[in-house]
Design a protein around this nucleic acid. Structure first.
Lengths: 231, 231
DNA sequence: CGGGCTTTTTACGACATCTTGAGGGCGCCA
DNA sequence: TGGCGCCCTCAAGATGTCGTAAAAAGCCCG
């Protein structure tokens, strides 16, 4: 299953079908919300903000196509349309108005679930893992590969950045010269501790308020270096 | 030609159906590539790197499901499966293996085209789900495949456009040379970073106010490129 | 088959980064 | 106090990367 506890809003007026959908979805560990009318559906979509909408076209108060249109004015969650109408024109209209899929009744529950997985797979692709690291005025955004100091972007060369992220990986702990060299320069770096001195100097120069008395990028004499996030 | 058109790879062995699809797609101004066999289809997918794949399940040499699986090892473009088999189990398998939609023959061409539009709409979206993208005076309409600068249309070649949309997809984040090459040129691009230099230069020339000091299409030395919307 | 557009390839100058070596400071200990 | 080890800074040369232009090759369409 793509998303274990994704929430699904079912907008469907027939009690029988609603019951069937609820049973199928909950037994596959989806969180289910239900609406019997179009207007309540729109309201719940706004308040619940579900991961996906299952929409019946034949609703008493408003046309399903209108619901699709209204939803798409602000929402981008997937919409799967379910309808007794199998006419091709209906499908095209719904899809072009913003629906992501169209199922004609009667349909198998397995296919519905598969199509739900596809839809959730799509929206899951766009999610970005926020991985940020802070120390004082310095912010390191690992996802964007971007370093800022007082919200001013700091440019780091590839080696500088790799060195910094390696230090972050072991934040708070000491890293020996040997280990740092191996992780940043590769296994053949040997004992070139001079590299470390040069690059640590450059990092301090770029990041520390007072490079000669570093708060974050500290030296552990005779051993290696350590990064302290608290200063 | 004023704007680059989406390309579709049709993998289908029956000549009649192939001819039908070709006619329908070209008359809707899609760029069409064709394969009669699964293995050729896989090869063409890799070399052409199309925006979408139309795949018949009943192929002579390999099962369509296998094709889906193989494609998904490296490719993320939408796959729409077409099949005479209407069994629910087949649909579920195909969808779970990575297909994005499933159409049972016979189907209306209008519905197929609508479902193609849906699929392309999906892949054209950026992180926030918008189909339009702005940076300064430049507007990119991902739905229409149209780029304007100060409301003047800018003509981009297919590769230029794909490169731009790929950068938009990862807006704000760095994309490595390798990743860009894979997404724009396909899996066999290798290490041709020279392509990137040439095409980034062309994009800057067409889009940036001062191409030699880019505001949006920026270089991350030693790593890759990044698109910044804020400048 | 020819012309125009696109893509690929080649060549080279400019520039940023990396590497390397020299020099100096600091603290520890004999 | 002087030697020694460790660390930091600086800068110059080597290296590699990037940008640009333009030629060559490929492709599509009439």
């Amino acid at each position: 299953m793509t998303e274990p506890n994704a929430s699904v809003l079912v907008i469907e007026d027939e009690p029988q079908m609603r019951k069937f959908l609820r049973a199928s979805l909950t037994s596959n560990s989806y969180q289910v919300y239900e609406s019997e009318t179009a207007s309540d559906g729109l309201a719940q979509a706004a308040s619940r903000n579900p991961d996906l909408v299952l929409l019946d076209l034949g609703l008493p108060d408003l046309d399903g196509l209108t619901v699709t249109e209204r939803l798409r004015e602000w929402a981008q969650m997937p919409i799967i349309v379910i309808s007794a109408r199998g006419k091709e024109e209906d499908k095209i209209r719904a899809l072009d108005l913003g629906a992501d899929d169209y199922l004609t009744k009667p349909f198998g529950i397995g296919e519905l679930l598969a199509r739900i997985r596809v839809a959730l797979r799509h929206s899951a692709r766009n999610e970005t893992g926020e991985t940020q690291f802070r120390m004082g005025a310095i912010k390191v955004d690992l996802g964007r590969r971007q370093v800022t100091k007082d919200d001013q972007e700091i440019h780091l060369t590839p080696i500088e950045y790799k060195l910094l992220t390696t230090l972050i990986k072991y934040e708070g702990r000491v890293i020996t010269h040997r280990q740092l060299l191996k992780e940043v320069w590769g296994p053949n770096a040997g004992e070139q501790t001079q590299y470390l001195r040069v690059y640590m100097g450059q990092l301090r120069h770029k990041l520390e308020a007072d490079p000669s008395r570093p708060r974050f990028l500290t030296t552990e004499p005779g051993v290696g270096y350590r990064l302290r996030s608290d200063g």
